[in-house]
């Protein structure tokens, strides 16, 4: 898959209401290219819902069901059942939820849809905050990060969402990054080719929320992967494989960049370095990252339980 092989068709009209440089929008644009027009989206309250609900206009060229914050998984089961009844079995039913709508308030409805075996793709775009309501912490916010509700830095590590989803023993799970666009596109198409519940998570840096210049958004996503703060992986029937840079890190062919390079590039971590270095917090970040990679190493060597 090369860039020139990405579909020419655009299913998002230009002139959407997202911030300049928003890679939530980039990920959507690419996902819809990968899926094509036979797609129905369910979108709970989020930045994406704001992009979509510019009534009476919308940039989306596929049907979208705007959903209550907590309910997207349940709504997806309903949409899939209705389409089945209509004989429209070849439509992609896709939830597009933020990390708030996935890790936190959307968790039980998503889990229910997965347990029911709904034929859909749950996509979480993870900008590590509740961005639409002005930068509050979520279960995906990393330790140490400033948000308006953790203004001295978050004191907990992020939730292991991929682990929670893996426990549902799905036929396909993947994490991706819009900074590795061909890999993201391939994973969307792979998910669409498999029947049953699928989960994808995209790591989407948010310039206004993380406090860095918007033109660096794609670079920030790449740096997250290079520092090991975000893994690229996929699990087919429970067998976990890492991809691209993340695979090279595990294979010892690429050395993780120092995490401080990533932290220093974002204003949300500035208090870890000024007025003086917070050695305790920085050591906790390093400890967690090493433990995380040890966990990844084990996942890669034994996989998880079969689907």
């Amino acid at each position: 898959m090369a860039i020139k092989d990405l579909a020419r068709q655009e299913l998002m009209h230009p002139g959407a209401g997202s911030c300049p440089g928003c890679v939530d929008l980039l990920s959507l644009r690419m996902t819809l290219k990968a899926l094509g027009e036979k797609t129905v989206l369910v979108i709970p309250a989020s930045c994406t819902a704001s992009i979509e609900c510019s009534y009476p206009k919308t940039p989306f060229q596929v049907p979208v069901l705007t959903m209550a914050f907590a309910a997207s998984g349940a709504a997806a089961s309903g949409v899939a059942a209705a389409l089945k009844r209509l004989g429209d079995d070849d439509v992609n039913v896709v939830v597009w939820a933020g990390d708030g709508g996935t890790y936190d308030i959307g968790l039980q409805a998503m889990s229910g849809a997965m347990e029911r075996g709904t034929n859909f793709i749950f996509i979480c775009y993870n900008n590590e905050i509740y961005s639409n309501t002005g930068i509050q912490r979520s279960g995906a916010t990393p330790f140490g990060a400033w948000t308006t509700t953790t203004w001295t830095g978050k004191s907990e590590q992020r939730k292991d969402m991929l682990g929670i989803v893996m426990a549902h023993r799905l036929p396909y799970i993947a994490s991706a990054s819009p900074s590795y666009i061909e890999d993201l596109y391939r994973k969307v198409q792979k998910a669409a080719s498999i029947k049953g519940p699928k989960y994808l998570e995209f790591h989407t840096p948010c310039a206004p929320g993380w406090r860095f210049p918007m033109e660096q958004t794609v670079e920030m996503g790449r740096l997250a992967v290079e520092c090991g703060a975000w893994p690229l992986l996929e699990a087919v029937n429970g067998k976990v494989e890492f991809n691209l840079r993340s695979k090279q890190i595990l294979d010892g062919k690429y050395e993780r960049k120092p995490i401080e390079e990533y932290l220093k590039a974002q204003g949300r971590f500035a208090h870890l370095f000024r007025p003086e270095r917070d050695e305790k917090a920085l050591a906790e970040i390093e400890r967690w990252l090493d433990a995380e990679w040890e966990h990844y190493r084990q996942l890669a060597s034994c996989g998880v339980a079969a689907a």
């Binding site: 002139g15 940039p59 989306f60």
Partner: peptide, 16 residues
């Protein structure tokens, strides 16, 4: 309420 697809749902964003 139903919104319909159109170019420039948030206006001519080039002005930003």
């Amino acid at each position: 309420t139903i919104s319909y697809p159109c170019v420039g749902a948030a206006g001519k964003t080039g002005g930003w």
